Simulated scan of single mutants.
Amino acid sequence: MLAVTGVSRSFGGVYAVRDVSLDVAEGEVCAVIGPNGAGKSTLFNLVTGHLAADHGEIAFLGRRVERLAPHRRARLGMSIVFQGARVFRGMTVRENVMVGMHGRTRSGFVSAALRLPRHRREEREIGREADAALARVGLTEWSGRPADRLPIGQQRALQLARALCARPRLLLLDEPASGLRGHERERLAALVEELRADGLTILLIEHDVGFVTRLADRVVVLDLGQVIAEGPPAEIREDPLVLAAYLGPAS
Rank of each mutant, 00 (worst) to 15 (best):
L191Q: 12
V212R: 00
G153P: 06
I205S: 01
L203P: 03
H207W: 11
H207L: 11
A147H: 00
I202V: 15
R181I: 09
G153F: 07
R181T: 14
R218M: 14
L222E: 10
P176H: 06
D174V: 07
R185L: 09
G144D: 13
F211Q: 06
V209K: 04
A157L: 13
L171T: 13
D217G: 14
R156M: 07
D208R: 07
F211A: 05
T201S: 15
I205A: 05
L150P: 02
L150F: 11
L173W: 10
V192I: 15
P151C: 10
E206A: 09
R214I: 06
L173H: 01
C165K: 01
R167I: 13
V221R: 02
L222K: 03
L195P: 01
P168V: 13
V209S: 04
E175W: 05
G199V: 14
L203W: 02
L170G: 08
T213M: 11
T201D: 09
R162C: 09
L195D: 10
V220C: 07
A197V: 05
P151N: 07
G199K: 12
D208P: 08
R145S: 11
L150C: 11
D174W: 09
Q159P: 05
P151H: 08
L170S: 07
D208H: 07
Q159V: 12
I205R: 01
A166R: 02
I205C: 01
V220G: 01
E184W: 08
L203R: 00
L172W: 05
A190E: 09
E186T: 08
L172I: 13
L172P: 03
L215M: 08
R187L: 04
A190W: 00
E206W: 01
V192M: 11
L160F: 12
R145T: 10
G182N: 06
I152G: 01
L200W: 08
A190C: 00
T201F: 02
T201K: 08
E193F: 00
A161Y: 08
A177W: 02
R181Q: 13
R214V: 03
S178L: 07
A161D: 10
D217N: 13
L158R: 05
R214L: 05
V192Y: 02
R145N: 02
I202A: 03
A197S: 14
D148W: 00
P168T: 14
G182Q: 10
P176Q: 06
D148H: 11
R162N: 14
T213V: 07
R167G: 10
P146L: 02
D148S: 11
P146D: 04
R145K: 12
L200A: 13
E184R: 09
V221K: 05
R149D: 06
G210L: 00
L158F: 03
F211P: 01
P146S: 04
A163T: 10
G199M: 09
H207T: 13
R149Y: 02
Q159T: 15
D198R: 15
L150W: 04
G182C: 00
D217T: 14
E193H: 05
A177K: 04
R167C: 11
L191K: 06
P168E: 13
H183R: 07
D174T: 09
V221L: 09
R167N: 15
L188M: 15
